[in-house]
Amino acid sequence: MTSTTDFIAELIRAANETDKLTVHETSRLLDRSIDTIRDMRARMSAASSHRSRDVLIDLRVASERASALSLEEIRDALIDAADVIRTLKIEFDGER
């Protein structure tokens, strides 16, 4: 597996175990997701979608509010991050 695929799997595992995550772990995963999405978008030749930009804003807000989020909100944010990264990976792999 690639590091991107490993990270997607890590996000999904974390989303399924939100009750075991600390606030710091949640924030760190969301921040890594933002960095990964930005990096992948920068490497792609095609213009990014508006959805990616909206998700980046949502992920930043979720990371900053991690201590105030419910377990369901944390799960949703992690799954959204994994979905965007997976979609970008598919698009990136298709460009090669």
Rank of each mutant, 00 (worst) to 15 (best):
I79N: 01
R38C: 06
K89Q: 08
E72G: 08
D19E: 15
S70R: 07
R86M: 11
I12E: 12
G94H: 12
H50N: 13
L88D: 03
A46C: 10
A82Q: 12
R53V: 00
E17C: 00
A42D: 12
E64Q: 11
S49Y: 05
R51M: 03
R13S: 11
A46Q: 13
A42I: 10
R96N: 08
R51H: 09
D80A: 14
M40N: 03
E17H: 04
N16I: 00
I37Q: 01
S45K: 08
L88C: 02
A47Q: 12
R32F: 04
S67R: 09
D39M: 14
G94A: 05
R53M: 06
A66G: 05
E64G: 02
A46L: 10
T2H: 13
I79Y: 07
M1A: 15
R53T: 03
E17M: 02
I34F: 01
I79E: 04
M40P: 04
F92Y: 07
R13L: 15
D58A: 10
A47M: 14
K20T: 09
D76C: 05
T2P: 10
I37M: 06
R51E: 10
T18P: 03
F7Y: 15
D76V: 04
D19Y: 14
S49P: 01
T5D: 12
S33Y: 08
L56Q: 08
I8T: 10
H50F: 10
R96D: 09
F92A: 14
S3R: 13
D6V: 07
S67D: 15
D19N: 10
D54K: 08
I8K: 05
E91Y: 10
T4P: 00
I37K: 03
L71E: 15
